[in-house]
Design a binder for these strands. Sequence first.
RNA 1: CGGGGCGUAGCGCAGUCUGGUAGCGCACCUGUCUUGGGCACAGGGGGUCGGAGGUUCGAAUCCUCUCGCCCCGACCA
Length: 571
Amino acid sequence: MRYTEYLLPTLKETPSDAEVVSHQLMLRAGMIRKLAAGIYNYLPLGLRSIRKVEKIIREEMDRAGAIELLMPMVVPAELWEESGRWDHYGKELLRFSDRKDSPFCLGPTHEEVITDLVRNTVRSYRQLPLNLYQIQGKFRDEIRPRFGLMRGREFIMKDAYSFDLDEAGADVAYEKMYQAYRRIFERCGLKFRAVEADTGNIGGSSSHEFMVLAASGEDAIVSCGQCEYAANIEKAEVALAENRTPEPAADMVKVSTPGCKSINDVSSFLDISPECVVKTLIVQTDAGETLAVLLQGSHELNDIKLCRFLGCNEVTLATDEVVSKVAGVLPGYVGPVGLPLRIIADHAVRGMSDFAVGANESDMHCVGVNLGRDFDVECFADLRSAEAGDICPRCGGVLEIWRGIEVGHVFKLGTKYSSALKATVLDDNGQDRVLFMGCYGIGVGRTVAAAIEQNHDENGIIFPLPIAPFHVLVTVVNPREEEVLAAAEKIYTELQDLGVEVLLDDRDERPGSKFKDADLIGIPLRLTVGARGLKENAVELQERAAGDRRMIPLAEVSALVRDMVVTACGF
RNA sequence: CGGGGCGUAGCGCAGUCUGGUAGCGCACCUGUCUUGGGCACAGGGGGUCGGAGGUUCGAAUCCUCUCGCCCCGACCA
C-alpha cells in the first residue's frame, strides 16, 4: 500500500476527550474515529489490525473444532422473554419496535438465539458435540462507555457456544476452548494470564478470564510465581495459615487514642504494627442484615467473597449514621467486645492474640484483647483479598499481583438456557436430554486496544508483529530523488511478492514528519531508503520495539525482512 | 442513574468573570524554498461561538430550557 493512496489521518495533538493511552494512540494513529459515545468508525489502519486478530481467532477456533456461523444482530423480544432475560437484563439491552410495533432488541450476546437455533436443528445425541461461533458486532447500551474501544457500546466480539449431552462432555469442550484461547493470545504476541474468575450473574459453575497484562488494566489479578495458579483478585483464595491460637499473655486494657480513626493512626499512636490490630467493619447486605466483619488491620475486605459467604447479592459498608445507631460510636472506634451484632471474622484473626480493637467509645481503643476470652465470633471464613507476598493456595509458592485487561472469558453455563428454552436431544435410549452448554467470548477490538496499552512508548504504538496493520514500513527519505524512489519501489515490490505486508511512505514530506508518523503508527519493522544509504548500496533497518538501527545490503534486505516476519508470525 | 466538568475553524486552546467588529497555534490550499527526526518565507480559505428562547441599542459573554460529550462510582468482551 502506498501512503499517498491510503487514508491514514494521523493527529499531531492528542484529542482532549481521550483519557487512556490506547484510546489516544488509536485516535492519533488514524485507526479509529468516534461517531457517537462508545461508537466508532474503524479506519483502514485500525481495521487491518482487527482483521489480524480475527484471523488468528478463526484459525484457532477452527483448529479446536468449532464451526463458524453468523447470527443476526436484531433479535425478537420473544426469545428473550422465553429465557427470562427480557425483564432482567436491564437498560443495557437496547430495545425498539419495528413498523408493526413488534418488540426487538439489539443482541448484546446470543445465548438465546443460538439455543433456539440448536433446539430447532439438532435432534439426536449423534449430532453432538457441537461448538458454534461467530465474529459479530454487538451492542450493549453501557451506562458509561469509555476508553475508546476498551469499553464501547458497539463492539466486535467473537462468541462461541458449545453443546454437549452431559457435563463430562461440556468439561471437554471447556478445556478445548481454554487451550484455544491460550494459543490465540500467545499468537497475538501478548503477555497475558488465564485466571480463575467469579462467575458473576451469567451463572454457571466454572469460569476463566483471559487478562492482557498492562499497568493501566482495570482488574487486579494474582498469580503464583511457582505454579500455574492465577485468579482474579475478586476470587483469589487465601491459603489457610497455621492458625494456632497463641495463649493470651495480656489483660484487656482500655486506652485513650484521641483522633485515631484509621488502623494506621491507631498502630502508630500505640506503637504497634497494623498486624496487631483487628478492624471491625459494619456492613449491610441487600437482604437488610447488618453485621460486623473482623479483619486483621492490614488486610482488605473482599466484598465478593463476603457476598458469596453470606449468600447475598450485595454488601455495602454501613453509613456513619447506621454505625452510630448499632454500635453507639462512629466508625474508627467500633470493636467486637460487647458489640450487639452478628460477628464473623477472617481466618487471619483466628491466629491473633493480645491485639487492639476499637472500644465502642469515642477516642478509645482496647489493647490486650483476645478471642474467646473477651468476645466470641460466630465463625471464621476467607473474607479478605489476596495480597502480593501471600502464600499460593495450591503450591505454597509466593503470589504476585498484576493488573490486567479482560479480553476473553470462558464459562460453563450448564443447562441454564437449554432448560429455559427446552433445548433437548434424544439420547441412545430415546430419552429427551437437556443440553449442557458453555459460552466463550473474546473482545476483538478490546484485544487490539489492550495490545496497544501493553505495547507503546512516548512516541507511539509498538505493535506485536502478528497483529500489526502492516509488517513493514518503507520510508522514502526524499521521493523527489529518482534513484531513491526507484530503490524504495523495488524493495516494495520485492517484499509484496514475498507475501510481506508493506506500507510505502512515498509522501513528499520532510523526513522528520515521516519518522514521527512511523513511530506513532508503530509498524514493527521499518526500512529507511535514502541517498545516504544508497551510496553504500544499503538501506537502514530499524525495529520499532528495540529502536536500534543497522544497515542492510540492498540485495539481502527483502529476504531478511521476510524471514523476520515468518519467524514472528509463521504465516 | 448519582457526583464533577466541558461544548468557540479539522485538532489543541484563549476570549465568558466585567456585554461593544470572533482570535492564537497546528492542520488545509497556492507559490518560492528545503529534504535522515514534526523546515523557512509570502499569500489564502474556513465559524449561524452545540441548539432554542429570553434580557439588552447591542450577547460567545447575562438568564431559562434543551442536546451532546468527557471524568469519578456500580456492570461487562
